[in-house]
Structure formats: C-alpha cells, structure tokens
C-alpha cells in the first residue's frame, strides 16, 4: 500500500502562482470575486505564502506553497461528527463532501488553515463553466473542501496501471500543481518506495515539516532554501 507524499523545494519556488491556477482549473474550485475574496472567502487549495525577512532595503522574500499537508495524525479527522473527514488506507486525508454538514470544526482544528468553506453555491463567469473537470464533483453551499492531492488522478492512474497489469511508475501520478510547476519545485510520489524521487527528497538534510511540533505528521516535506550565508 502506497503512502502518498510531496516534497516542495523552496529553493526552486519562485512564487509564480502557476500551481494555484492549475489547482483551481483541475479541481473545479469556484472563484468568488474580489469583494468576497477581501472578506476571506477565497478558496485556494494551494496558496503561495509570502514572508518577508529583514528591514528595507535588505529585504528577503520567501515563498512557501502551502496546501493540505495530508497529516498522518490529522487533527481535522477525529473532530468531524459525520466521518466526512477521515483517513484512507493510502494515507490520504479524505474529505467526503456528501457527508459534510458544515460544522467547520475541521477547519478550526487544522493548524495550517488548509480547509475552505463554501459560503455560496459555486458559480463561474462565462465561459469558464465550460472547462469544468468531469472527474471532480462540484461542492454545494455549506460544505468544507480542501486539497485532495488530486485524488482523481491517483485513482485514475491506479486503474490504468491495474488494467495494464503493472506497477505505477514513479512520477507517473502528477497532481495539477506538480504538473504546472515550471521550476519543478513540487515533487509527488510514494513515500513507501525508498527509490522514488519524493522519498529521496523527503530524507534530504534540507527537509523539514511545517509546524512539526504540533504533532500532525505531515506528508509534505519542505526543502529549505539555500541562502548565501548558509
């Protein structure tokens, strides 16, 4: 059984935001417009966090693409009264939209604020509604949604590999953000397979987990940025 994980090389990330756009397109994430976005209703399953360090003019800008960390011990899961948020056997932190009644408890429990609430029914500006992904369900008003590691792609590739009677090749599954990353800062794969690229990167001495001390055992590893001083 695989355990899916991701590595994000902060040395490569230039903060272009391509992953955010790709994610919106792949996962049918509705945009809410500038007015609602300013009220905190934007839904970016992946976001590029920007942190500035130092005082002007010696300012350093750091980017951190942040998405659901698919925690091993996810705080969002036990708090859900209806099992909408639960753990799959391959280590994914699944969100079943149809079970969700919208208590929003999971979002409060999430240390990464990686969960988003649908404040309104989804809508798209024409002609964007024509490019919806048929593999991903739309979410109605009142449910929580979040990054799934593009579970539709994982399951699709698993099915293909099974019908062809072979194992899944490393790098064969690419979530939309990984696929769109022009600097190849994001790498996705099976952490159980010690030969896979993501597994190799996760063991890198540059690697660390986000908010590791909260005890969530995330599946995403961030590779530290190498600076001149380091």
């Amino acid at each position: 059984m695989a355990r899916w994980g991701m590595a994000a090389d902060l040395d490569r990330c230039n903060g272009c935001g391509g992953c955010v756009v790709a994610c919106h397109a792949e996962n049918n994430i509705s945009t809410v417009g500038p007015e609602q976005a300013s009220r905190g209703r934007a839904k970016h399953w992946i976001r590029v966090e920007r942190y500035w360090e130092g005082d002007f003019p010696d300012v350093k800008l750091k980017f951190r693409p942040t998405m659901c960390q698919q925690c091993g011990n996810a705080p969002c899961e036990p708090v859900c009264p209806t099992y909408a948020s639960h753990h799959t056997e391959d280590g994914l932190n699944a969100q079943v939209y149809n079970r969700c009644i919208g208590t929003r408890y999971c979002a409060n429990a999430c240390p990464y604020n990686a969960r988003f609430f649908d404040f309104f029914n989804p809508s798209w500006e024409k002609p964007l509604q024509l490019q919806l992904n048929p593999d991903v369900s739309l979410r109605e008003v009142g449910v929580m949604e979040k990054c799934t590691f593009c579970v539709q792609r994982i399951r699709g590739t698993q099915t293909t590999a099974k019908t062809e009677g072979r194992e899944i090749r490393d790098g064969e599954i690419q979530p939309a953000c990984v696929q769109a990353c022009s600097t190849r800062a994001l790498v996705f794969g099976d952490l159980e397979d010690r030969e896979s690229e993501v597994s190799r990167l996760s063991r890198s001495p540059r690697g660390s987990k986000l908010l590791e001390d909260v005890g969530t055992r995330p599946a995403v590893t961030y590779l530290a940025r190498l600076t001149e001083e380091a």
């Binding site: 609602q36 009220r39 905190g40 209703r41 934007a42 919208g102 929003r104 979002a107 409060n108 604020n113 988003f116 609430f117 404040f119 309104f120 029914n121 008003v141 009142g142």
Partner: peptide
C-alpha cells in the same frame, strides 16, 4: 436560502 456568506464568518475564523 442565500448561503452562509451573509455572515461575517471567514477563513480562518470559522466560528
């Protein structure tokens, strides 16, 4: 009817 958006609840203050 109009959706929960009429409240001031927002990311990340969901309660």
């Amino acid at each position: 009817v109009n959706g929960y958006g009429v409240t001031g609840i927002r990311w990340p203050v969901y309660w």
